[in-house]
Write a protein that binds this DNA or RNA. Structure first.
Length: 210
DNA sequence: GTTATGATTTACT
DNA sequence: GTAAATCATAACG
């Protein structure tokens, strides 16, 4: 049975418990995050939306992951923090890609947020993207998500549920679609993992699932 | 110190 | 379909 999320409700009661992020594998958690509400408060502006697309990246044996083979570098160091920390890195020189770190310290699993359905502060998000009216491209694709939420590498290494960035539980049961991750062709066999997850029938998806 | 490149987006042919 | 934009990072010498 399908349900659509019409209203985002959030208060301290429904804050996503970070402890949960320690007790499940990253591919399961990436599905759990779909349908959750992400809220940022950056430069005094509150913006947010329902997470509609994620990808899982696992440290040890996932070639697509920055921390493949547990390899720690200056860039990916925040992935080695305990679950609930935020990993933001610059991609192609232009885009800030936003990840939520899961698992215990030194097990560098992370979940990339690829798309959201805008719910809060839409005017602010439009202006951050230099857009006049609401279109899907506002918040589809990981670079666009970060831009409209005001997420920059300044947030790298910070902790979820702090003032700037909060995650709330999803209000309803939802349905998930799966596909291959985007832009990881170099990862050989791991590129075939169905570790990309979308909110079923949501138009706020960066690329159609096939 | 130098160089190649990427978990992308966008515009254009 | 192809390509440009654009730079911090990683890998190498």
């Amino acid at each position: 049975m399908k349900t659509s999320i019409s209203e985002a409700s959030f208060d301290s009661e429904t804050l996503f418990p970070l402890s949960y992020l320690f007790h499940h594998s990253v591919d399961v958690l990436a599905q759990e995050l779909v349908g959750c509400l992400i809220i940022t408060e950056i430069d005094g502006f509150i913006t947010g939306g329902i997470i509609s697309e994620t990808e899982a990246y696992a440290a040890y044996d996932d070639k697509a992951c920055h921390a493949y083979n547990n390899r720690k570098t200056l860039r990916n160091a925040p992935m080695f923090l305990p679950a609930g920390h935020v990993y933001v890195y610059r991609c192609y020189g232009l885009h800030s890609l936003f990840n939520i770190v899961t698992n215990k310290a030194d097990t560098a699993d992370a979940i990339l947020i690829r798309s959201i359905e805008p719910r809060v502060g839409i005017e602010t998000m439009l202006s951050r993207r230099n857009m006049q009216k609401l279109e899907y491209r506002l918040s589809c694709g990981p670079g666009n998500v970060s831009q409209c939420l005001g997420i920059s590498t300044k947030l790298n290494g910070s902790l979820l549920q702090s003032t700037s960035i909060k995650l709330y539980q999803r209000p309803l049961t939802i349905e998930i679609v799966k596909g291959k991750r985007v832009g990881v062709d170099y990862a050989g066999k791991d590129a075939d993992k169905l570790w990309r997850f979308g909110l079923r029938n949501s138009p706020w998806i960066s690329k159609r699932f096939v």
